[in-house]
């Protein structure tokens, strides 16, 4: 049975542990303060001609399996809808031309590098991180391979090396963070694009550029920039001739899915008030039920006066 002293002792111990855990959690969860100068890429899909050079450049840069640059001239693959996977971080999909325009819409698909990424929020060990400068990066050394990031991603981007028995990795576009942030180069796909359909730069400026283009050619562009608001915004910004949902982007709200789960998690566990309250409640319940069932038994009544009075 729980005596008062014991009860206090337990509660104290639990509170100590809680404080310890909470401080650790706080340190590791502090909101990523995004750099106002953070980078991004503007993809003007109406300029893309589906040459697939970006696919080759990406594979080359990331040491993924690939053939010669010429082998990427094959346009037949554009007929089927492909997805990025563990062997390719980006693909081009072709959507038929609308009635009012001659050109089909070629859409480059890769990780959009969310501003508030669900994968980062989900990751159990912080292997996925949102770099304040933009890219969502992956540290294979930390990863335990739970694949919760894949469940969480609303764009179904992270892929997994299921056939690697020992050291499988989560595979996705890195926004060439090694090249861009450390060496000051352009991402491989941006560098190789012959049409300048891809523009690398500060996200704020890219947004301005996107809205300028829309204002100048309202007939050419759909008025919304995909990635400005969707799921809290993304580092990649897409300009298309039609709504994003018509070129393969799922219908999604403007709030990151991570907000709801983090609110629930932190609401329940903030300062461990919830668990501590349950603990205290159960302790009291256990004590009172024990006292009730065993009147006059044991010598615990000495330091148990409060409880006794309570139950009269």
């Amino acid at each position: 049975m729980v005596t008062r002293r014991e009860f206090l002792k337990y509660t104290g111990a639990a509170a100590g542990t809680a404080a310890l855990v909470a401080s650790g959690a706080e340190a590791s969860t502090g909101k990523t303060h995004l750099d106002p100068e953070r980078i991004g890429v503007l993809a003007d899909l109406t300029l893309c001609i589906g040459c697939r050079r970006c696919e080759w450049g990406c594979a080359e840069q990331n040491k993924l399996p690939h053939g010669t640059l010429q082998s990427y001239d094959d346009q037949a693959v554009l007929k089927e809808m492909r997805r990025p996977d563990e062997t390719r971080f980006t693909v081009i999909n072709r959507y038929p031309a609308p009635a009012w325009r001659e050109q089909p819409l070629d859409v480059k698909v890769q990780c959009l590098h969310c501003e508030k990424p669900a994968c980062v929020s989900a990751c159990i060990v912080g292997a996925l991180e949102k770099n304040p400068k933009g890219p969502v990066t992956y540290d294979a050394w930390k990863c335990i391979g739970c694949r919760y990031c894949m469940v969480a991603c609303p764009f179904q981007i992270p892929a997994y090396e299921y056939d690697n028995a020992l050291t499988p990795k989560v595979m996705k576009c890195t926004l060439c963070s090694e090249r861009t942030l450390k060496e000051g180069k352009l991402p491989a796909c941006v560098e190789i694009c012959p049409r300048e359909a891809l523009v690398y730069g500060k996200r704020e400026q890219l947004l301005e550029l996107a809205h300028e283009r829309i204002a100048q050619h309202p007939d050419r562009y759909h008025p919304e920039v995909m990635g400005e608001h969707t799921v809290g915004g993304t580092s990649w910004l897409l300009l298309g001739d039609r709504p994003a949902t018509e070129y393969g982007i799922p219908e999604l709200p403007d709030q990151s899915p991570a907000i709801l789960t983090e609110t629930i998690q932190h609401g329940v566990f903030r300062g461990f008030t919830g668990p501590l309250m349950i603990f205290s409640l159960l302790s009291v319940l256990m004590k009172s039920s024990t006292d009730k069932r065993k009147p006059g038994q044991g010598d615990s009544h000495g330091d148990n006066r409060d409880g006794e009075d309570h139950h009269g």
Binding site: G24, A25, V120, S121, A122, C123, I124, V125, A258
Partner: peptide, 18 residues
């Protein structure tokens, strides 16, 4: 790598899985 979950420097309090 399962032990990573217990390492304070890798704790990720935003994750329900954590």
């Amino acid at each position: 790598n399962i032990w990573h979950v217990l390492m304070p420097q890798m704790w990720q309090g935003n994750s329900a899985l954590f």
